[in-house]
């Protein structure tokens, strides 16, 4: 009969794997676990209310939303694009690496500036194409496909491993409350400090790897013979600068 208590865990695993509605899965898992664990309906409401009240730290993102939209309204994305334009001697690989540094550093301050839809597609990709054209080559579609993959990967990696450095982010708060339920009291700032080496390894390793990978791709798609200064044209529309 003890195994019945695991029904909720099973619902979570199977439910997420089958891509059912996330809130439905959690709703069912809560109800089934509470009933199978002998809490009863009243006990379930009691426990649910206590957990919700104790977990309100996770709603702190709503406080931050008071400024998120207004920062965007006042030109945060344009400011980030301006910073990216300062990268000198850019190749597509170096631009992706520079994007990772900017995204990571701002991520540690819990500041997003557009993501794939809002920044990579409208700003970073035109800049990368411009960088390739600046060396007198016509961008190869397969090369661009790789650059897109690297840019999205950089976006995810830096956001995941640098946002945990923000004291009060959802990840740290979830770990804090999970540990508190188990009887371990930990401070959010200590959880953030532990992640510093991980964040650095994630960014440095990925940045170096992508710069080297892009160098190989350039050799593969365009050959090494073309001298970089051969026909240097600056296409003012294609690199996204006005």
């Amino acid at each position: 009969m003890e195994l019945l208590k695991l029904l909720g865990v099973l619902i979570v695993i199977v439910g997420f794997a089958l891509k059912l509605d996330s809130i439905l899965i959690i709703f069912l898992a809560i109800v089934v676990t509470a009933l199978a664990g002998g809490l009863g309906f009243g006990g379930m409401l009691e426990q649910l209310g206590a957990s919700f009240t104790g977990n309100r730290s996770m709603a702190i993102f709503i406080m931050i939303l008071l400024i998120t939209g207004t920062l965007e309204r006042n030109g945060l994305r344009e400011a980030a694009a301006e910073l990216m334009h300062k990268v000198k001697g850019a190749t597509a690989g170096k631009l992706v690496a520079a994007y990772g540094v900017l995204r990571g550093l701002l991520g540690a301050f819990n500041v997003g500036f557009g993501g794939v839809a809002g920044f990579v597609r409208p700003v970073l990709m035109p800049m990368a194409e411009g960088a390739i054209r600046n060396t007198g080559r016509e961008p190869d579609p397969d090369h661009l496909e790789d650059v897109k993959g690297m840019a999205s990967a950089m976006e995810n990696i830096t956001w995941f491993f640098w946002q945990v450095l923000f004291v009060g982010g959802a990840g740290g708060v979830l770990v804090q409350t999970t540990l508190a339920d188990l009887g371990y009291q930990v401070e959010l700032v200590d959880l953030a400090i532990v992640e510093i080496p991980v964040a650095i390894v994630a960014l440095v390793f990925t940045a170096i790897r992508f710069i080297l990978k892009d160098r190989k791709l350039v050799a593969k798609y365009y050959g090494t013979s073309l001298s970089s200064g051969a026909s240097k044209q600056t296409d003012s529309t294609s690199d996204g600068r006005k």
């Binding site: 676990t33 206590a50 919700f52 104790g54 996770m58 708060v173």
Partner: peptide
């Protein structure tokens, strides 16, 4: 603007907090 972002994120933004509640129920059971 905060309402605009809340609506854009939708109900899924409550996922971490609901998972926290689920953890509490797991422990109690």
């Amino acid at each position: 603007d905060s309402e605009r972002f809340l609506s854009m994120m939708g109900p899924l933004c409550m996922l971490p907090q609901l998972l926290g509640c689920l953890g509490g129920v797991f422990n109690a059971a």
